[in-house]
Amino acid sequence: MKTLPNTPFVKEAQEYVRRRGISLEDLGSDYFRPMIQRAKERIREAIKYGIVRTVLEDPDVEIISYPIAILILSQIGDPFLSARYAVAEAKRVNSLLREEEDSVLLYITQHTFQWKVFKVSTKVMGRTYAFAIYFRDYLRGVPRGEIAWKLINRPLIDGYVLLQKYELARLIEEALRKRIESLCSERPSSEMRLPTALEKAIEEVIELYRPYRERIGSLSELRAGGSISREAFPPCIKALLDDLERGKNLPHMARFTLATFLLNIGMSIDEVLDLFRRTPDFNESKARYQIEHVAGLRGSKIKYLPPSCSTLKTFGLCTSPDEFCSRVRHPLAYYAKKMRRGRK
């Protein structure tokens, strides 16, 4: 099957690795050197470019390097690095799938993720939809916080959501990202004896990531004792900061909300930028551009405000409002009122 090395996460590829009966000790042998090399390479590409390339020179290398990369990451146990890798690997697969035959996408969704998906050919609003997915599976995998992905803005018939090919590829990307993240976060047992070659690879990866890791400041430094008080943040903003803290991948609307909120209460562009270094798909020049844009330094020269509470509710970003929230309709109002009260 041609897609096996492309998509080493599919069931068949995993099965293939298992059938080869590769053990940890085996990985120390010379045969596996190129695979460990490629695994390192995968992670390096993720760190540097935010996307992993597809290399098809040696299918065996491509397939086996994938679980090795995950093994390395779970040994390191850095949630930021794992999240960044998961995003990068999932992006690679997304771009591949857009070019694949429909049947390949169908096969992956059904066998790897056990989704109920089938092929259709339906035209709605001038668009041709090629797939229909059971709404349960759609809801489990859909990227949150993007209004175009809200169920209400999707054609839903008889329990099935219609999707175009690139949209199904995006759902697979999301699901794969989550899967890799959870695989990487499995704590290895302490008795595990790693072959030297692998130990060395782990060290190299840590070394490679160090300069990136160091720039991710600690959130507790958030102008500690200064003019900004995290205590006074509304629950929605606190939740977003918590997600950021854990290296979670924030959807677009969440980033916009956080950036505009922090800029509006007086944080500088560089301070906000440093916070966003924690997002797994961080890209410095892109992020800077976006932050400068909402700060009103570019384009329309409008300084954006964060969305109101009702918009945040619609986007599912107001998950646990507190008592104080009933008095406000805007997160900035929440902050201003709390600060005023705190000073009294």
Binding site: R136, L139, R140, I147, A148, I152, N153, G316, T319
Partner: peptide, 24 residues
């Protein structure tokens, strides 16, 4: 049976759909 595991966020999407919230 296959819907009982849906989390809160997924249920919110269903609610928004039925209440017409977030329609664009």
């Amino acid at each position: 049976k296959d819907l009982i595991e849906l989390d809160q966020e997924a249920r919110r999407e269903i609610v928004d759909y039925i209440k017409g919230e977030g329609l664009i």
